[in-house]
Design a protein around this nucleic acid. Structure first.
Lengths: 343, 343
DNA sequence: TTAAATAATGCAAACGTTTGTATTATTATA
DNA sequence: TATAATAATACAAACGTTTGCATTATTTAA
C-alpha cells in the first residue's frame, strides 16, 4: 500500500508536460490563448494524474470564496431550515455554497458569528436577527467593510446598505382574524410570542387592527404573549393560559404553527370540539398542520421562496458596483390563508 | 463617506510599527518569542486599525481549513437536521465549522458533493449515504486521498477506513413489536420504507424476528413497504394500504414518526379508536409525537448525540497518525421506547 | 571588557493558484 | 527571404499568512 498522500498540483502537470504552470492553468480554464493540442494534453494529464484544483488557493488568488454565510437563530425550527433550503437551492444554481451557523437565539453568538464571517471565508452574509438583537451596529460594521448583507424575517430596524426580505405579517394576521370575524366568531383569542420579535409585534398589530375595524371588544384576558423559546415550555404556558381564561373563546388566532398545534392539543384534551366550540388558526404552514386531526387552518408563508429571494438579492449585490454605499431594497412576500378543518 | 475598502493586513501593521511581518504574526499568536512590550504594541495596533485575519490565507498556509463537510440526503427531515445540530455543537466546541450540503436523495448528487469536497475546502467529511447509494467506490476514493470520513445512518456496506455510527434498528424494532405482542396484540401490521435503505431493512428484520419468536402469524397483507420519498405521497400510500387491508390490525408498528402520524390520522378519520381498536408506534421521536392527540408511542433515537458522536470520531481522526490505512470503528447507539397514549 | 549565551527580530520560502506582461515561435505578407 | 503580424507560451508578481533559519540586540558570565 503505497501511501502517496501528496496532492497533484498544477506544477506537477507542468513539469510532466514540460510546460509552464501558467499554461496549465489556462488550459484547464479552456482559455483560447492556449493551443488546442496543448489544452488536450493538459486535460488528459490532469485526468490521469487525478488532479483536483485547490479551492483555497483559488480563493486566495481570486479574492472570492463562493461561499455564502447564513446565520439563523436556531436549527430546530422548520421555518429556518426551509429558508435555508431555498437559499441553498438558489445558491447552488449560481455556484455558491452555504455555510450555516446558528446564533442560538443569543445576540452575543450572533455577533460572534458575524465576526467570524469577517475573516474572509464568505463572500456575503444572510442573517435573520435574534429577538435579542436591538442594536444593529455589528451589522452596519460588516456592511461598512464592504461585505454584502441581506437580512430576513425578524428585522427590528432598517439597516441602510442591506437588503431586507420580510413577510406581510400584519396583513396576513389581519386577514386571518377578519376571516374569523366574518365567520361569526365573537370571542377571538390571540396567542403570540415574545414582543421583542418584530414578527410577533406585527402579527399582534394585525389582530388588533382587525378587531378594531369590526368593533370587536378586545379582552386582555384573551391575549397571550408566549415568552418561552422552548417547545416544552410553550406547551406549559399555553396550557395554563387556556385553563385560566375567564371568558371561553370561540376562536383562537395563533402566531406559529406550533402554538396552533399545542393549542389544539390542549383544547382537545380539555374536551372541546374543534372547530365547533373553538376554531384555531396557525401561522407558517410548515409540516404538521395538515396531518393533525382535525387538520389546522394556517396562514401559509412562502418560506422556501423567501430563501430563494434572499439568496438572489445577495448574489445580485455581488455583481453590483461595490460602491453603492446606501443600497436598500425591501421585499415583502405575500401569504395565503389555507382553510382546513380547524375553522 | 470615505470608501476605504481595503482590508488591513499583517503588512500594514508591520509597516506602521516598523517591524517585520513575521513578528506581527507571532505577536498576534501570543508567541513567547516576541517581547511582551512588542506584543502589546502589535495587539493594540491591530485593534485600532481594525485588523481581521484572513482565514483563506491562513488555511492555505497551514493546510487546515477547520471546516467539516456534511452531506445529508435531505434537509426536510428533522432527523438529519437534528444530527447536524449535534455535529455543529461538537464541532464548534472544537473550533470547526460545518458546511452542509444535501444530496437530494440522489446518488449522482452525492457523488458530486463528495467531489466538490475533494477540492481542499474541508478537512474531513461526514456522510449519510442515499438510498440510491449501492457502490461505495466514490467514498473509498476519498478515503484513499487521505481525507478523513465518517458515515452514519444508512450504511449498506462497511467501508474500510471510515468510521460508522448507526442506530440499533433491528433491536429497537424487535423490542417495540415484542412490547405490542406482550400487550396481547394479535394482528400487528408493519409500515416501513423503501427496502433499499439499510435502516428499513433492519427495522423490518426486527419486526419479523419478534413475530417469529412469539409464533405470531405473519400476513403479507399487513405489511407495507412505503415507496414514496415525499410526505404527500406517503399519505396517499398509507391511506390506500389501511383502507385495503383484508384483516383489520389491532396494532401497527411504523418505521418513522411520519408514517406513525399519518397512520394515526387516517385511522382516526376512518373512525377507529386509538389505542383501543388499534395501537400505533412510531420511530424517531422527533417533534410531533408528543403533540398529536392521542400522543404517539415512539422509539426514541439519540439523534443529537449521534451527531455529536459522528463529529467526535471525525475530529479524532484528524489527530490520529494519518497513516492508518484501515481504521474502522463502528459505533451502535441505543434507543428507548417512549410510551404514550397510542398504545 | 569581551566572549558566550540567550533573547528578540528579520528574511525569505512556502502554501497553490491567477493573470498582466514579456518573450518566443509560428504564420502571413510583400 | 526578410519583416511584420499574430499565435503560443513563459515569467514573475500577487493573494495574506506561517515558520525554519539567519541575523542582530541584549544580557550574563568570566
Amino acid at each position: 500500500m503505497t501511501s502517496k498522500k501528496r496532492r497533484v498540483k498544477l506544477e506537477d502537470i507542468a513539469r510532466k508536460l514540460n510546460i509552464s504552470i501558467a499554461t496549465v492553468s489556462r488550459a484547464l480554464d479552456e482559455n483560447p490563448r492556449v493551443k488546442l493540442s496543448t489544452r488536450e494534453k493538459v486535460i488528459n494529464a490532469a485526468k490521469t494524474m487525478g488532479y483536483m484544483p485547490n479551492q483555497i488557493a483559488k480563493s486566495l488568488s481570486s479574492g472570492k470564496t463562493n461561499i455564502i454565510g447564513v446565520i439563523i437563530p436556531r436549527y430546530d425550527e422548520p421555518f429556518f431550515i426551509e429558508v435555508c433550503r431555498g437559499i441553498d437551492n438558489y445558491a447552488r444554481e449560481h455556484n455558491y455554497k452555504i455555510l450555516i451557523s446558528s446564533s442560538r437565539n443569543s445576540f452575543e453568538f450572533e455577533r460572534e458569528n458575524l465576526i467570524s464571517f469577517e475573516r474572509g471565508l464568505v463572500d456575503g452574509i444572510i442573517l435573520s436577527p435574534t429577538h435579542e438583537t436591538e442594536m444593529f451596529a455589528h451589522i452596519k460594521n460588516i456592511i461598512n467593510k464592504g461585505i454584502p448583507v441581506v437580512l430576513f424575517d425578524n428585522i427590528r430596524e432598517e439597516v441602510s446598505g442591506a437588503d431586507h426580505v420580510i413577510i406581510e405579517d400584519d396583513k396576513a394576521s389581519f386577514e386571518a382574524v377578519e376571516f374569523l370575524i366574518k365567520k361569526g366568531k365573537k370571542r377571538i383569542a390571540f396567542i403570540g410570542g415574545i414582543m421583542e420579535k418584530k414578527v410577533f409585534q406585527n402579527r399582534y398589530k394585525g389582530y388588533i387592527d382587525a378587531m378594531k375595524k369590526y368593533n370587536m371588544p378586545i379582552h386582555d384576558d384573551l391575549i397571550l404573549h408566549c415568552k418561552s423559546l422552548d417547545r416544552e415550555f410553550e406547551d406549559v404556558e399555553i396550557q395554563s393560559f387556556l385553563k385560566g381564561v375567564s371568558i371561553i373563546p370561540d376562536a383562537i388566532f395563533t402566531c406559529t404553527d406550533n402554538y396552533g398545534l399545542l393549542t389544539m392539543k390542549t383544547l382537545l384534551k380539555m374536551g372541546y370540539n374543534i372547530p365547533d366550540d373553538v376554531a384555531v388558526i396557525g401561522f407558517g404552514d410548515l409540516g404538521l398542520g395538515e396531518v393533525f386531526v382535525p387538520s389546522m387552518t394556517c396562514i401559509a408563508q412562502p418560506t422556501y421562496e423567501m430563501g430563494q429571494k434572499v439568496a438572489e438579492l445577495l448574489i445580485n449585490q455581488f455583481n453590483e458596483p461595490n460602491d453603492v454605499s446606501h443600497r436598500k431594497k425591501v421585499v415583502k412576500l405575500k401569504t395565503q390563508l389555507v382553510l382546513r378543518d380547524s375553522t
